[in-house]
């Protein structure tokens, strides 16, 4: 109950935020990225964190949503909401095919197979014609009700809505039969089976839920950016970023993925946008032409992925339960 109240308060703050900061597209853009990564990581967390099945291929479901939506829109100009729904169906089919085969195996096979499936999807999309191949898909115009879809604000609320839905589902699951069953499977499969848990069914259920939510986010992303290609929505890098966000925040906790996203997305942005270098140079602390200045403006901007890596290693070494683990002492 407390969690739900907390969720409601945060949602209210997030709802009001665009009104407070006004229409600054740069800031709204970063906020959208944060909400999206928080939601992606939370959706992944249902399967990876609660059921303990690490998917390294969630980009496949994200891409399934994005591609389905943009292909249907560019070809038939259908209602975007209908396109999102079809995206869910496509992602669910991929999830069911993967799960029904791979969940018969134990151990780390699911993790490996999830990479394989995601790569198959990526290479297929890259080589088919109707997907635009390497050129990707450009969406010129889209309309829904009388929303101004050229502005970023509708997508801010769209991402926020999916995040709230994902967190609500997670909060509900944790106190339900399914949630307990997923955690039991994570802790010990044999014990779970001996207590009447159909492991195969519940793993597939978690995968399906996780994939469906992820595909909605992919669809929203496609509608928001209006240009997609395989490197933007189907890349292994995206799958890994989703996992890292959850690990750094706290795997298998309600708020871990959100905390991970709140931290990592701005961090990546600061590094990517040269903010540190600019501030130091403007303050006159570092000369722009000095070695340090060149390093800050040049190399460091490309280092955000490396920094992600370093933070992850530090987290695994010192915070195995993520940042949230710091505040949670086991009884």
């Amino acid at each position: 109950m407390k969690q739900i109240a907390f969720l409601a308060v945060l949602a209210a703050v997030a709802l009001a935020l665009p009104l407070v900061i006004g229409e600054n597209p740069y800031i709204i853009g970063i906020l959208i990225s944060m909400l999206m990564m928080a939601a992606l990581s939370s959706a992944w967390n249902i399967l990876g964190g609660y059921a303990g099945q690490y998917s390294f291929g969630h980009a496949a479901y994200f891409g399934a949503g994005a591609y389905t939506t943009l292909i249907l829109l560019t070809l038939y100009n259908l209602n975007p909401l209908f396109c999102i729904a079809v995206g869910i169906v496509v992602a669910s089919i991929i999830a069911l095919v993967t799960g029904s085969i791979v969940f018969r195996l134990r151990g780390h096979y699911f993790g490996l197979a999830s990479i394989a499936v995601a790569e198959v999807v990526r290479l297929s999309v890259l080589n088919f014609n109707f997907t635009g191949g390497a050129q990707g898909i450009l969406l010129s115009d889209v309309a829904l009700w009388d929303l101004d879809l050229n502005s970023k604000t509708p997508f801010y609320y769209g991402m926020l809505l999916v995040l709230v839905v994902t967190l609500s589902i997670t909060a509900y699951l944790r106190r339900s039969k399914t949630g307990y069953y997923l955690q039991a499977i994570r802790e010990d499969q044999d014990a779970a089976a001996s207590l009447g848990i159909n492991i195969y069914f519940y793993k597939n259920k978690a995968l399906l839920l996780s994939a469906a939510l992820t595909s909605v986010l992919g669809s929203l992303y496609g509608l928001y950016i209006r240009f997609i290609d395989t490197s933007a929505v189907l890349d292994l890098r995206l799958s890994i970023e989703i996992i890292l966000t959850a690990i750094i925040g706290g795997v298998g906790t309600l708020w871990g993925p959100v905390i991970g996203a709140l931290l990592l997305v701005p961090l990546a942005e600061i590094l990517r946008s040269n903010l540190i270098g600019d501030v130091l140079i403007k303050a006159g602390l570092v000369s722009e032409t000095s070695g340090v200045g060149l390093f800050l403006k040049g190399s460091l901007a490309n280092a955000h992925v490396l920094l992600y890596g370093i933070i992850t290693v530090l987290c695994i070494l010192y915070l195995p339960k993520g940042i949230l683990g710091l505040f949670r002492r086991k009884k």
Partner: peptide, 19 residues
């Protein structure tokens, strides 16, 4: 023994009860 280590004692037994 196969306790579900990160769950509480009560939660362990609840997993059985959900059958």
């Amino acid at each position: 023994v196969k306790p579900l280590g990160s769950l509480t004692v009560l939660e362990n037994v609840m997993v059985g009860a959900f059958s």
